[in-house]
Nucleic acid binder design. Structure first.
Lengths: 334, 334
DNA sequence: CACATCTATGCACACGTTAACAATAGTCTT
DNA sequence: AAGACTATTGTTAACGTGTGCATAGATGTG
């Protein structure tokens, strides 16, 4: 059917071994022989059979890109940036295989033979199981976005606690004292980190947050909307609301305007993530930017380094987040 | 290193052929032998080597999912929904390999050996080259999202012309006569279709659109913003603006509010795509919903059908779009 | 009982590639 | 000029799996 090195060999009047060596640019083969063979291969439109290569070289040329879930809870922008980041560094060398971890009923099929390396974009503590499995199989991996306990695993993430601290501090510095919190999805590490940064800022500036000023959330528009509706029913309403991501912040702003009030004049809002639309809503959302694309690029680069140099660098890289000040927070003068 | 069928054979006291047949549930093997072998395989934690299988069976177990570009112009939500749709139907049977078409410097490596089938999510006429290449290699394929000329290719898309017609007609039915258009990215088929639907509605209701009421766009927030700024400088401003996607509509709304004006009271806006945030901006955006996830699911299903039944069904499936009425269009009373 | 038929299993090879080792011819060294 | 060395190419086996054909035993048939 398709052209093999044996076909080329026949035409070139050499052995298939010579063809193999020539095409792999082995120093054993004479330069002019190589050139002759390359030309013939080109003419015959030869493409190597990667299954055969994989079998003998024990490399799959596959790079896994695993997300906690593909069906819910992952924001589209996050997903997109992560794929872009990884894709930008792998070039032609690997095939990028995208999976949702929750699609696996068993990790049985995840082996050294099927993946040269795996990028786990982890958003939940539950991912620990697959991370351990990958580690136990000895497959090179890098875990992005979430701090990971397993030692000896590459780990690249942004300092979300610091980002949340920045944003919460900013609210206080703008004169706010009655500050409410809409939390992230339970079980997601980011939810915990962002909350921690918020709490640290409150402690640092000695602000107390009453229980009524805390609402759970699911990282989606709906739950932000609901939470803000709750806050608005309170006798003593908060003057500012810290939302653990931008989508909930949008939902919250929606609730404010539905109640005939205005952001930021009646109530201030900050988000987290700097999603692509944050700059374009009205008012433009003040938020915290995570360098996701950079995270996934740095992670993929280090992973490829480990794969190709057969080393086992293990490092935790913490990239800085950045507060993006826009229009959704009002300066409160006493 | 890892367990092979020969290891199992040794332990079971049979030939590796028997093991192979047993694990593939061949009718040639006695039921109790099968069961015995299955148990041993389980205990030894056997996983088949897919490179070896691929080599002999001439199947890669790979499904390509190709986007026009991963680096620009593709909206995150679109991307996300497409992957979700395809992923939901492939289960464990295939690996999903995501690629940007513009990452290829040569299509040379795209062969029957490396892909059992390919889903091309096409957003540009330029994709015709890769579609033809895939067809010429005899690889089963389905083209989503864009009508394709090549005959004998599965094709699933939404009727965007009809969607645009719906939205534009809605503006007119709400009493608007001075209607402007912000076009989509040049070269993208969707840009053409949406414009066509818009024009048909104008003709149908005998509305003329002056040249100053037409602005080019790039499908991003920036260009929508710019275009609307232009419209606002006109002496006779349009009362409604049809934006060829939601992101540009957001940019446009931003420009309106920056000018101290209000949507929909001063100017009405419609978008296209029903992106996830359309419902949550202020005012909520009236737009057209494309069933992307359904498109990619239906497309993937038909593709798998063709692969697994070795048939070559060729069909064009046109899925209906839907107008989602929200708050960004005002009822104009004469 | 002789023969045909059926059932369950094994043998040997194939898939396309790489690599250890062998072979050949030419060159250098002393 | 013989031996050692080098440069280039070929021979053969190996990777793990599936399959056509052969085989051995069991069963049926007249």
């Amino acid at each position: 059917m398709s052209v093999t090195i044996k076909d080329i060999a026949k035409l070139a009047g050499v052995s298939h071994t010579t063809v193999s060596r020539a095409l792999n640019n082995s120093p054993l083969i004479q330069e002019e022989t190589k050139e002759r063979i390359r030309i013939i291969a080109e003419q015959m439109d030869y493409t190597p059979n990667y299954s055969a290569k994989s079998l003998v070289l024990d490399r799959s040329y596959n790079l896994g890109l695993f997300f906690t879930t593909l069906s819910q809870g992952t924001s589209a922008g996050f997903f997109y940036e992560a794929i872009r980041g990884v894709n930008s560094v792998i070039q032609d060398r690997y095939q990028l295989i995208v999976k949702g971890i929750d699609d696996y009923t068993s990790f049985h099929s995840i082996t050294r033979k099927s993946f040269d390396g795996i990028v786990v974009v982890s958003q939940s503590d539950d991912d620990q199981a697959i991370i351990d499995h990958i580690a136990s199989k000895g497959i090179p991996q890098v875990v992005l976005n979430r701090p990971v306990e397993t030692s000896g695993v590459l780990n690249v993430l942004s300092d979300e606690e610091q980002g949340a601290f920045l944003a919460a501090s900013y609210l206080i510095e703008q004169g706010h004292k009655r500050i409410a919190l809409i939390e992230g999805r339970k079980g997601f590490k980011s939810a915990q980190n962002r909350k921690d940064g918020f709490e640290r800022a409150m402690r640092h500036y000695q602000i107390t947050v009453p229980p009524a000023y805390r609402m759970p959330g699911l990282y989606d528009l709906e739950s932000g909307h609901k939470a803000m509706q709750q806050f608005l029913t309170l006798d003593e309403r908060p003057t500012a609301v810290f939302c653990c991501n931008d989508e909930m912040a949008l939902g919250a702003m929606k609730a404010v305007s539905e109640a005939g009030m205005n952001v930021p004049n009646d109530i201030s809002v900050v988000g987290f993530d700097d999603t692509v639309f944050a700059a374009y809503v009205t008012p433009a959302l003040t938020t915290v930017r995570r360098p996701i694309e950079q995270i996934s690029r740095e992670g993929a680069l280090r992973l490829l380094g480990n794969i190709e140099n057969k080393q086992h660098e293990t490092e935790q890289l913490l990239l800085k987040t950045e507060l993006i000040v826009r229009e959704s927070v009002r300066l409160l003068t006493p």
